[in-house]
Computed example of a mutant assay.
Amino acid sequence: MHGVFLNRFLAKPKSVGALLPSSRHLGRQMAKAVTELPAVESVVEIGAGTGSITRHLQPFNPVVVEIEEAFALLLRQRFPQLDIRHGCGLQFLQSLEQSIGLVISVPLINNPLRDRFIESIRQGHESGHIKWCVIFTYGLSNPLEGTGFACSRRRKWVVANVPPAHVWVYY
Rank of each mutant, 00 (worst) to 15 (best):
G128T: 02
H2F: 12
V65T: 02
V134F: 06
N110E: 06
A160S: 14
H25T: 09
G148D: 00
Q29G: 01
L57F: 08
D115E: 14
F92K: 03
W132S: 03
H129T: 06
P80W: 15
I109P: 01
F9I: 02
F117E: 01
F5D: 02
H2A: 08
W132T: 02
F149Q: 04
I130E: 00
F60K: 08
V134Y: 09
N161G: 05
F60S: 01
L108N: 10
S105T: 04
G51C: 02
S15V: 13
S15M: 14
P107K: 13
E41I: 04
E126D: 08
N61H: 15
H2D: 11
E145G: 06
S52E: 13
T35N: 13
V43P: 02
L140R: 13
F9H: 11
R28W: 10
G87I: 07
V158L: 03
E119A: 07
A33P: 08
F60G: 00
I109H: 13
T147L: 05
W168M: 04
F60C: 01
L96I: 09
R55N: 12
R116H: 14
T50F: 09
V158G: 12
H25A: 13
L96G: 02
Q77F: 09
F5T: 01
Q91E: 15
Q98W: 05
F9K: 04
G124P: 00
T35H: 15
D83E: 11
L6G: 00
L75V: 01
R28S: 12
N61S: 15
F149E: 07
R78T: 09
H56I: 07
I109E: 10
I118S: 07
C133Q: 02
E119R: 10
G17K: 12
R155K: 12
V158R: 11
Q29K: 10
Y138K: 06
S120Q: 12
G3W: 15
S23C: 04
S120C: 05
S127F: 02
A72G: 09
T35M: 12
E69G: 03
A165M: 10
E68F: 11
S42G: 08
L10I: 10
P143V: 05
G3N: 14
L37W: 13
V64G: 09
P80R: 15
Y171A: 08
N142I: 02
S95I: 07
S141H: 15
G128W: 06
I53V: 15
R55Y: 13
H86K: 06
A150L: 09
V63L: 09
V43I: 14
S141N: 09
W132G: 00
V16M: 11
N142F: 03
R122Q: 04
G27H: 03
Q94F: 06
Y170L: 03
K32A: 15
G49P: 03
Q91H: 14
F149I: 03
H25M: 09
S23H: 07
V162R: 14
I118P: 01
R114I: 04
P59L: 03
T54Q: 05
F79A: 01
K14W: 10
Y170G: 02
L144G: 01
I53S: 03
V4P: 00
I130C: 05
A70Y: 10
S141W: 05
L26D: 08
F79S: 09
H56T: 01
P38Q: 11
K12Y: 12
R85Y: 09
R116Y: 08
